[in-house]
Design a protein around this nucleic acid. Sequence first.
DNA 1: CTGAAAGCGCTAACAA
DNA 2: TTGTTAGCGCTTTCAG
Lengths: 335, 335
Amino acid sequence: MIKKKRISIEDVARRAKVSIATVSRVLNNFQSVNNKNRAAVEEAIAALKYKPDVSAQRLASGTNNAIGLVMPGYPGIFYSFYAVELIRGVGHACEKLHLDLVFHITNGFNDLNSTSVGGVIFADIIENRRQVEAALNAGVACLVINNIVEDLDVSYIGIDNVLGGEIAGEYLAGLGHSRIATVTGNLQTQSGKQRLEGFKKVLKKHNMTLADGYVQEGDYSRRSARVGAEKLLALPNPPTAIFAASDEMALEIVALLMERGIKVPQDISIIGFDDNPSVIYGPVALTTVKQPLFQMAEEAVKSLQGLIQGKQTKSVKKVLKPELVVRDSCSSPKK
Amino acid sequence: MIKKKRISIEDVARRAKVSIATVSRVLNNFQSVNNKNRAAVEEAIAALKYKPDVSAQRLASGTNNAIGLVMPGYPGIFYSFYAVELIRGVGHACEKLHLDLVFHITNGFNDLNSTSVGGVIFADIIENRRQVEAALNAGVACLVINNIVEDLDVSYIGIDNVLGGEIAGEYLAGLGHSRIATVTGNLQTQSGKQRLEGFKKVLKKHNMTLADGYVQEGDYSRRSARVGAEKLLALPNPPTAIFAASDEMALEIVALLMERGIKVPQDISIIGFDDNPSVIYGPVALTTVKQPLFQMAEEAVKSLQGLIQGKQTKSVKKVLKPELVVRDSCSSPKK
DNA sequence: CTGAAAGCGCTAACAA
DNA sequence: TTGTTAGCGCTTTCAG
């Protein structure tokens, strides 16, 4: 083990000719330190390039300015826009709030040791329900993100995916389509289920019946989108509009249609979900349902901080709304 | 501040009727503990759901089993395959080695406090050179990933991007192409520069001259790929093969060609770079140069661990080789 | 406004 | 093999 003699608070105190308590006070921005001493301490800190030892601070103060982010570990998750936005959002929010971010991938074996963080954000609750419950029991501040959880008294910030599905369906119906199909997301996930639910709800409201085969089950992967879309096209009475449960899937469907010489939106309209930035390039800018993933991540960090600091005493339960972003991939059906 | 009375090593010792030293020993897997005591301690730990306090352990032992990963913060980085693979690779490696991963985005203001980790991995050295130097001066174990750094005595693990460019060019030339163009990556980055360098080197070796406009400067974005490819197609004597410096870019070019009714590979061959998994779906499976990003991340973590533990005393300098992956997007040119 | 001193929960000599 | 005890570097009473 390399052990170097680190510069400690004592070295700073000695140089500034004050006690370590005073150094600690300037470190923690106490207003009570007189200017002369403060200046001396600051000089010493700079001269010695002193950095307080984080572990010692945490131990002595009983606080911990790190938060954990635990993500499910299933293969492919990192290739989803969703996961990346979460990491990005939580990462940036932590920078802003001067929090350390401890990133942890669920693997079923070793959980994140909650003593190394002040609180933890769970991405979804799929695959890590046990960990969430353990955190709750241990009294660790925690919050589930991207999932509305009803059966546990835990804080969460989610997105109204039912509404999202409705928005997509409503827009297509409003354009005059009556043959509207969907390629769903992973129906094991809450988002996948709920988007489909909202979509069906709208069609019902408009008295449209979902023709046989009009609901193709996908799993958010491009591959599943292609497979589903191919089946849709092979139908005796193919749809004039398709709701894809993610932009990635929508993009793949557009690509497939182009390959077959089917024009978007003239022949078939496509609407996606996410508002993935890559969606505005390519042959046709995608109309989509935007979900505020980045914002959700930011709010999660802020809320968690409130929970940790005890400013927030009861669990926060927040649902963010998605919204329609109209671009060029949908139009009214041909007569 | 919520402060709960946590269960401490003392509680465990009391219940197991041993000293705290013995508890510490079983915690740290010392073989010297007799079986009866060990069993008693383990029972107590389980019964009390005891988790050792990480901060106290770190402070007392002077070791820190967390590593930092600092990523450049420029916009768009998270949408690159490269960044995601790094995060994924480092994340999984840390799980495997039971290391905490502290994720940090460079923002020019607050650096990662190195006392909160045992060592740090810098993704690239672009944008954070100052931090790398500071870490070096402070004697913090560190390693630069995805960058071969010559002008600093720092550990690094990089990829031979010159070779990568050569592989791409050589393959295309070997197929019989003589009109080979490229859309480059960001030429501010080492990878962008070196891939272009290798590519040019091969053409020179084959006595091919790069026609005017055959090198289109991109920046790894899909958008830049589209722009570059459009210019290539507008040339009086357009290329029969294109080397794109990333798969994302290659995919966008393929999409553009399809839109225009140009067939890949019959009319134009495309080769990418990365071996992004999304590349095998779509209209044509992409031939590409695979770079072992995930593996690089894993090795980085292992090497850093060696550095931290002092098993590795001199700086590690390792360069990984990319390799050709032949799929369907390249063929010999039409006569 | 400042300093002395008692911990925070653990590890690591050192003795036994 | 075990227990006692002195720290690790800091924060936080409590006096002054």
